[in-house]
């Protein structure tokens, strides 16, 4: 390898004394500190922060409006326009779930029910949110478009039991979803 001799730049007398550079640096650091104090840090506006730095103060300030459509938060079950549970408890999501977070107890729909022809719906549907890795495989695999990853990300609890979402909780998060394929309606 060829040796390249790099000439160090010649410093002027003022640069050699070094104080000018230190003073300039101090002005810069102080300017940042001052801007933080008055709440006008660079970039604070774009990032929607408090202004003390560019950091967002989390529980008070949230970024929910900026969340993208495809955000993968907690998995939840949905009902269709006619309030029918879309899940038919085929258990595909249970089998695909990599961390084995989903547990379904299938149940029959009684013959006198309006939706008897669907035949099955879950008796119990538990998702252990301690195990869930938010991969979205359940949503991917669902043939009925019944399970979705919602943009809710605040899943907290003080016990392990609280962290297991049961069926009621899942429908509460998911809610009603319109405009999906309705393969069980009367016309078909």
């Amino acid at each position: 390898m060829a040796t390249i001799k790099v000439q160090r730049p010649k410093l002027s007398a003022g640069e050699k004394i070094y104080f000018g550079a230190i003073f300039k640096g101090m002005v810069i650091t102080l300017r940042h500190a001052f801007r933080s104090l008055v709440g006008k840090s660079v970039g604070a506006k774009e990032l929607n922060s408090t202004g003390v730095g560019i950091t967002m103060q989390y529980p008070e300030q949230k970024w929910d409006e900026e969340l993208p459509e495809y955000y993968r938060g907690t998995p939840a079950l949905v009902t269709n326009e006619e309030d029918r549970e879309k899940c038919v408890s085929c258990q595909l999501c249970e089998f695909i779930c990599p961390p084995k977070a989903i547990k379904i107890t299938p149940g029959e729909i009684p013959t006198d029910d309006e939706w008897a022809k669907v035949e099955k719906r879950p008796k119990a549907f538990d998702i252990d949110m301690i195990r869930c890795i938010y991969c979205g495989m359940c949503e991917e695999v669902c043939p009925e478009e019944a399970i979705f990853l919602r943009p809710d990300y605040v899943v907290t609890g003080t016990t392990r039991k609280e962290m297991v979402h049961d069926k009621d909780r899942l429908y509460e998060i998911g809610g009603k979803r319109v405009g999906l394929v309705n393969k069980w309606n009367d016309l078909k």
């Binding site: 940042h32 500190a33 660079v42 408090t50 003390v52």
Partner: peptide, 13 residues
């Protein structure tokens, strides 16, 4: 705290 505001952070608050 002072380091934090110099670096546009919040610090332990």
């Amino acid at each position: 705290r002072f380091s934090a505001i110099i670096q546009d952070r919040v610090g332990p608050n």
